[in-house]
Structures are given as C-alpha cells and as structure tokens.
Amino acid sequence: MMIKQLFTTFRNGSSISEAVCCNLQVRFLHKSAPSMRDVVDRKEMLRSLPKPDEGTTGEKAEEMDLLMKDKLLLFPTKDTPNQLFNGIRFKDLPIFNIRSSPNNTIITLTNSKGIPELIRSCGVEGFKNARKGTNIAAQATAITIGTKAFNKGIKTVRVRVKGIGPGRMSSIKGLQMSGLQIVSITDNTPVSWNPPRPRKQRRL
C-alpha cells in the first residue's frame, strides 16, 4: 500500500518531502532498478516452481520398503516364464513398450518375440509441441492404443517402460483403463556406469 502511494507521488511530480511527511518509513525504500525487479534470484525462483512430473512417484518413499518385505509374490521367480496368465504362458504374452521422455511418449505393442504390431505416440494422437509431454496426452494415447489392442483380441499384456517422463506412469494407467489386464511392469531404462561422454549441460 505504502509503496504504491509513494509511486503515485513520484508520478505526479510532487517532491519527495511530501511523501516523507506522510510516512517516515519511506526513507528505507531504495529506488535502484535491481530492487524493483520481481525475481531476485533465478535459482530461488526455480526452486519455488513445482517439480516436473517424471512418473517416478514413490522413488523416495521409505514406507515402500516395509510393504515390499512381506510381498514376495510381487517379484518373478525362475518359474515365472512358464506361469499361466489367462491360459497364456508369461513368456508368450504380448508386450506393450512405453518409451517416455520429457517431450513425448511412444507406445508400441509387440508380440512376445518383439515384432511390432501397433504403434502410437502423443504426436500422432494430435497433441503438438509442449502438450505432447504431458501425462494427459500419454494417458489419451494409451487409451487409444489399448482399445485398438483390445479389439484385436488381446486381453492380457505385460508392460515394459523405458526412460523417465510424464508419461511413465500415466500411460500404464491409461492402458488399464482401456480394459487390458496388465500382468507385470518391467523397467528397461538404459543406464550405464561408464557411458560415452554425454552432451554438454544446458545453459539456463
């Protein structure tokens, strides 16, 4: 309030003494340009922004450890490939490959050998530019391709995800919403501990 008042005084061309008369605190106001800016520090601003959705919920959740301990059924064993799911062996189930990156999500349906049958991405779905890289776009894409697969007669699938991005979790949810039964989720993110030199860092 007070600052606004002061600005109006300046704009009207009246002397500062008038302003000082009406409020003593005016003296502590700096008129220099940097202090007038909204953003003081870029790092601070970036910190205040919400973190981008990477589809990695539960990455740091400690309570998952306790849950995992008594759930041995969650993990595959050496008999898993021959286990039956809806009358199909696990190793013969069709695979949904999800490639999620910060800017797009690509979903491919392959048979158990890895031969592609259907492919769909957020770009094909009609989302363009920045909207491709959202969880909503990923979910819509997943529902479309999931329905197509369902109409082909595929009911039970396994899912393999690669990379981190907004579509990582939401596309799996979308596949389930289209009526498919998801048996397992596998992570296939390529990670190396001695990679070739990556590209240089982005300058923000």
Binding site: G55, T56, T57, G58, E59, K60, A61, M64, D65, L67, M68, K71, L73, L74, F75, P76, K78, T80, P81, F90, K91, R158, R160, R168, M169, I172, K173, Q176, Q181, I182, V183, S184, I185, T186, D187, N188
Partner: peptide, 22 residues
C-alpha cells in the same frame, strides 16, 4: 522380464509402479 520386474496384484497398477520406482 526377470530383472527389474514387478507383478501387478489385484489390478493395482499404481502400487506396482511405486514399488518399481522405489
């Protein structure tokens, strides 16, 4: 499909995802 694999139980995809992420 043996390594880094989590089974979905009771159609609860999100829980499986969270376990995998953890």
């Amino acid at each position: 499909f043996i390594a880094r694999t989590v089974f979905v139980q009771n159609n609860d995809v999100e829980a499986a995802c969270r376990v995998l992420n953890r």
